[in-house]
Design a protein around this nucleic acid. Sequence first.
DNA 1: CTATTATTGTATCATGATGATACATTAATA
DNA 2: TATTAATGTATCATCATGATACAATAATAG
Lengths: 255, 255
Amino acid sequence: MSLMKNLSDKELERGIKDFLEAAPKTYLPGVSIDTVIFSFHNNKLKVLLLRLGDMPYFSLPGGFIKKEENLDDAALRTLQERTGLENIYLEQFYTSGNAIRFNENIVHEKLKTLVNLPDNNWLQQRFISVCYYALVDETKVNPQPGPFTSEFQWVDIKKVPTLLYDHNLIIQKALNRLAADLDQKLVGFNLMNETFTMGELQKLYEAVYQKKLVRTNFQRKMLSLNVLERLEKQYNGKAHKAPYLYRFMEAKCKC
Amino acid sequence: MSLMKNLSDKELERGIKDFLEAAPKTYLPGVSIDTVIFSFHNNKLKVLLLRLGDMPYFSLPGGFIKKEENLDDAALRTLQERTGLENIYLEQFYTSGNAIRFNENIVHEKLKTLVNLPDNNWLQQRFISVCYYALVDETKVNPQPGPFTSEFQWVDIKKVPTLLYDHNLIIQKALNRLAADLDQKLVGFNLMNETFTMGELQKLYEAVYQKKLVRTNFQRKMLSLNVLERLEKQYNGKAHKAPYLYRFMEAKCKC
DNA sequence: CTATTATTGTATCATGATGATACATTAATA
DNA sequence: TATTAATGTATCATCATGATACAATAATAG
């Protein structure tokens, strides 16, 4: 599902110029934020990727920290700006800081073709990037382009292409952390609808753990947690027993 | 155990002046490193704290990142500079970035009493701090003062006083992470001597988990991991059965 | 209306990990 | 030689988990 914004080069140029003028007085230098935005839709775990212009690589959405803004607040703000959502589950998990970043020169070249930039402009400095992961409802996200975004795409976690910088590594670390948090903090329900079947929930866990689970044991485990409320059955017209719907009872959980 | 370096105000002034002259061309602005250095000695889990001049608060050791240096390399270098050790177990676990840091003004005031500094000097900028924990052998550490250090102290984790900035929170997060890594990656042996008794190992786990463990079950669990080599007994002159010594067999472990 | 099919919900059994407890072992001392 | 205090091992109950069997059921085909 590609969300083409089809920003023209003219629009990109305008956005980048405005950004570059404001950035040095607005944002902390040398520190950026990258966010791995997860969703779970049609039984697939996905991440939101974006592209600058017609560049051959996607990258993670991110942003910068205002000079008087707390780090976590900046992560939430940039995420809200990009998704239009409130109340997002957000977790810091890693900070990336190699001196030379994969393909960064390609980005700089691309920027120069879009805008007439001097060498050593604000965007060309070295950045230490603080990484967060977010759990969102894909259907409620209305991606808003930032100054460097011409295209959004939700990509199946199993089909993520080679990305800019070390963003593939960052996604892998996010996924590892999400798997641990799924166990220990039950954060997975932030990715489910209000109601869901046990089979749907199992698909989420399988996508995060990247392995098949035994259906009957999964069901027993989930029910034993005592955080699921069983609702009416879901008659879906299929020629078999209808599954129950469940709701996650936040009150019973310690997260 | 206090390691007074008794740096005079004159020495501190010289060091800080030199640092401030070199810092802007040497280090990335706005990003620092804080390191929670753990040791386990005399059955006590400790962290290395340091004090600037005669300030009323201790703080964590740390450092800065050279302009062309990878983040992890910087963490290792600053740690080596401060401890004189090679081959240190080091793990990044958190990045701290509130806009206003607890008691930072006190530090700025103290610096001004030591050196005649302008407002808005390099040290007074806002820092995003990337936090690492390290596991070291206290007896092999020979603390080297940095430009802001007049005193080192190994402090029992149970007796850490109120520290500067959010360093108490950072230590707590480091301890939580260490507890998780003790389980999953068996990093604890980095804190033990080459050989140790089961009782000593249990004291380490109890100090990290901050709770008592049942001796017999702990022993069974550790032996079942198949990573311990049993050596000769340790006759220590006590009126009871002598305990075996054990050695950690790295080869059998996946860390 | 009945048999079939695909899926779902539950029960059962074997296995392994863990908490709790008992007990045998032993190095030094009285 | 008995005592003491710590150590090493065994045992039992409990719980979590993997594997498997089986009953229940909603739609469909005959």
